[in-house]
Write a protein that binds this DNA or RNA. Structure first.
Length: 275
DNA sequence: CGTTTTTGACCCGCGC
DNA sequence: GCGCGGGTCAAAAACG
């Protein structure tokens, strides 16, 4: 009899624990949703701000001369569809970095390099090597003749497969203010826009956000604490809408989230997990 | 050892 | 036809 009673109590305890876990799970789900929404809003806002600042230049009829012109116009980094199947982007890089790597989410294999007449910098030729069946897309990468800190990447063709498009595409838009531009030493390109005419390929970079990351930056670490504290200070019983609103209205949370996202991008994880 | 990069050779279109 | 320049090939080297 006594054993039966103690067994019942154990069951009750376990059920209580299970219920507690359920609530915690629910809370975590709301937190994730709220963070996702906020993150999306931030992305949109940042894209809009960038777009406002950069403006658009039509290089549709561009040849080398207009490339030069575009380079002369300071701080213009853009994606320019030159036709249905070709487009050109300018990518800001470290001028001391000799590599001609443009991280655009696709995997490229270099098959040639040539010094052209109008530019002392060699032009590199790449093929897309992501699709096993063979992707027809090619790209040419060459430093801008006027400004060596820019790479001019010309894409030719359309991918017949999905892109492994993630972190690098947003790195710049999230981590750089106007004149405080990446790259750091050893880093590569900072791309502003998707490198293709967006017809069949939607540009929806997936963000791998790991708030537990500890970066070298003290300020961003503080911001992480803000995020974490914000998360921890909201208990399970809070009204959901108020709870979400408390995130969206809190400027410190906004700043902290932006910093965390930016840092997660500048320190990408080997195998990020999507939220 | 398989994959990627390098680099000289080759091909092809264009202008003269 | 010839030369020039851009694009591609492919063998060798480098890399992981």
């Amino acid at each position: 009899m006594e054993a039966h009673t103690s067994c019942n109590e154990k069951v009750k305890t376990l059920r209580a624990g299970l219920e507690s876990l359920r609530k915690e799970n629910e809370t975590l789900r709301f937190k994730l949703e709220a963070m996702n929404r906020k993150c999306n809003i931030l992305q949109v806002q940042l894209q809009e701000k960038k777009a406002q600042k950069l403006g658009v230049i039509d290089l549709t009829e561009s040849r080398s001369n207009s490339e030069i012109t575009s380079c002369k116009r300071a701080r213009i980094e853009l994606q320019v569809p030159t036709s249905n199947k070709t487009s050109r982007i300018l990518v800001r890089t470290d001028s001391t970095d000799n590599s001609q790597v443009v991280k655009d989410g696709y995997q490229w294999r270099k098959y040639g390099q040539k010094v052209t007449k109008d530019n002392p910098s060699p032009r590199a030729y790449f093929r897309c090597s992501m699709a096993p069946a063979g992707c027809p897309v090619k790209k040419k990468v060459q430093r801008c003749v006027e400004d060596q800190s820019f790479l001019v990447a010309t894409y030719d063709g359309e991918h017949n497969h999905d892109a492994n498009y993630h972190v690098p595409a947003l790195r710049d838009s999230l981590s750089s203010s106007d004149d405080e531009v990446l790259p750091k030493a050893g880093s590569v390109a900072n791309i502003i826009y998707p490198p293709y005419p967006v017809e069949n390929h939607s540009f929806e970079p997936s963000i791998a956000l790991d708030l537990s990351l500890s970066g070298p930056n003290e300020k961003s670490r503080r911001n992480d604490h803000i995020v974490e504290n914000k998360l921890h200070n909201n208990n399970c019983n809070v009204n959901i809408e108020e709870y979400v609103a408390s995130f969206t209205k809190d400027p410190s949370f906004t700043a902290a989230l932006a910093a965390a996202v930016a840092r997660s991008m500048t320190h990408p994880q080997p195998k990020p997990s999507k939220i």
